[in-house]
Design a binder for these strands. Sequence first.
DNA 1: CTCACCTTAACGCCGCGTCAGAGTGG
DNA 2: TCCACTCTGACGCGGCGTTAAGGTGA
Lengths: 155, 155
Amino acid sequence: MENAVKSASASRKVSAFVATDDGEDRKQRWFTIGDLAREFDVTLRTLRFYEDKGLLDPRREGLNRLYSRRDRTRLKIVLLCKRVGFSLVEIKEMLDLYDTRDGQMTQLRVVLAKFTEQVAVLEQQKKDIEAGLVELQENIADISAQIRDREQKRA
Amino acid sequence: MENAVKSASASRKVSAFVATDDGEDRKQRWFTIGDLAREFDVTLRTLRFYEDKGLLDPRREGLNRLYSRRDRTRLKIVLLCKRVGFSLVEIKEMLDLYDTRDGQMTQLRVVLAKFTEQVAVLEQQKKDIEAGLVELQENIADISAQIRDREQKRA
DNA sequence: CTCACCTTAACGCCGCGTCAGAGTGG
DNA sequence: TCCACTCTGACGCGGCGTTAAGGTGA
């Protein structure tokens, strides 16, 4: 059984897309899969899955994966994008724009547009949930009343 | 190609669990799969899938499915429960309590408990979405700034 | 003949979880 | 020897969508 790898604290830095490779721990140059799993609180399976989907591309040392600081940054971006509701395919599309030759201007603009649209998506989801909460409360009230009614008649 | 079957208006009656079989259209006794699909704005596939999962159990007329008013009520409940975020398995568990001999008291109590718990679930989801919105806005601001910066330097 | 409506069967998607079985370094 | 860590498959799930291929009655 592959063990769970728990407890971490993802440093929620703003705008990971802007590659301000922020020197927060410049010491470490390479990371094992376990390192990243612990740091970002994801499973090994997840990291391998992301690789399979083209989101990460670690080098190999023998069979073992070795992640660079760039991989680590990409992972950070992936997780940020997931938190705000993008699919892995969408995330890949955004990440792959890094290779345009205009110094990421295209990437920045596209990402800005997508993030802006995503606000509307999340707001809709929020409305759906709020509507769900209302329905829940209505039904809770109704069912409570019914229960009281029937307990009454039994008496 | 099986056609889409669109446009409907699900009558959002409160507390469908309380089987006040409400006489809103007592005329019709049996429904085809297309009838229900239109009325509740779901696909035929969905209705067959629910049957496969034990949520519905229409009789047959030859090969064709024929849904009773009771099936229709169950479907209504299924869709309500889905809107408030229950899984099909959970929904089945709640529906199956109808057969307890105490005049649905057990069902009412269990449903009340589950609905009450579900409030907390939806509220957590709402928080997650709100946190996502905050992250989105932070990043939108940051990226916008970056874009302005770089356009500046080019000039 | 067409048309609307219905049928079963089966693969596809997404984001991994969860085995199984094995290898490596200290 | 054991432990910690890693590896490659490959199936499972939830909630359906989406073909494919066909039947039935007006």
